[in-house]
């Protein structure tokens, strides 16, 4: 049973390992054949699978590099959107005498104005730290610091919390939660790719 498991693991490693690296896969197979201890053999086979995935990821390093910059740019874009929203909504809330026709003649302007004027000021104030976390996360990402993902995740988490609070508030947003937080999907996907590329110890230069 152990032999069968090891064989499956090595077969999987062979499928994952990039073609130009097959010599190294054969090298691992050769070493595996000389391991007597069953538990050591399983551990070695699991390591072969890990090594194969790391090589596959390494071949995609250019995507990891692009991912880092795209994620940082997107985080800055979202931060800018939050700051712009803070400025616009804050200006509208600070002008109680504003009328719907001052904002435009589109249908729904009256409801939008009511929503903005009823929007809690403290929630609006939280937009600023969200933007701050996203900006700091983007900067740390460019500097390849570990704190980058923590900062981005914190900003995203607070934004989600705000969206949930808004949904539960009487007179709050009638947007589905998915629409309120859909902007997080690219951040989560890109952050995951970048995090995976950072997990590979061999990807650090000698």
């Amino acid at each position: 049973m152990i032999n069968s498991l090891c064989a499956r693991l090595l077969d999987h490693a062979a499928r994952v390992m990039p073609g130009p690296r097959q010599t190294w896969l054969n090298a691992m197979h050769g070493e595996f054949a000389h391991i007597k201890n069953p538990l050591a053999a399983i551990a070695f086979a699991l390591g072969c699978v890990q090594a194969s995935y790391l090589q596959r990821i390494r071949d995609m390093m250019i995507f990891a590099l692009i991912t880092r910059w795209v994620l940082a740019a997107y985080a800055l874009f979202c931060a800018g959107a939050y700051l712009l929203a803070t400025a616009l909504l804050g200006a509208i809330k600070a002008t109680p005498q504003i009328k719907p026709e001052d904002l435009g003649t589109d249908p729904g302007t009256t409801e939008s104005l009511s929503f903005i004027q009823a929007y809690p000021a403290w929630q609006l104030a939280v937009f600023v730290p969200i933007a701050g976390l996203l900006v700091m996360g983007a900067i740390q990402l460019v500097r390849r610091k570990r704190s980058a993902l923590t900062l981005l995740a914190s900003g995203a988490a607070i934004a989600v919390l705000l969206a949930v609070l808004d949904l539960s508030r009487a007179g709050g947003s009638d947007w589905p939660l998915a629409m309120s937080t859909g902007w997080l999907i690219p951040i989560i996907a890109l952050a995951l790719v970048w995090w995976l590329s950072r997990r590979a110890p061999d990807l650090k230069p000698a």
Binding site: W24, M28, E31, A43, F44, A51, P201
Partner: peptide, 24 residues
């Protein structure tokens, strides 16, 4: 030196050692 011997000497598992050998 063989890979398995290097694993024993350095304490590295195969999943860490072989990518490192490839890069070197």
């Amino acid at each position: 030196r063989y890979g398995y011997d290097l694993m024993g000497e350095t304490g590295l598992k195969s999943g860490a050692l072989y990518p490192l050998l490839i890069r070197l």
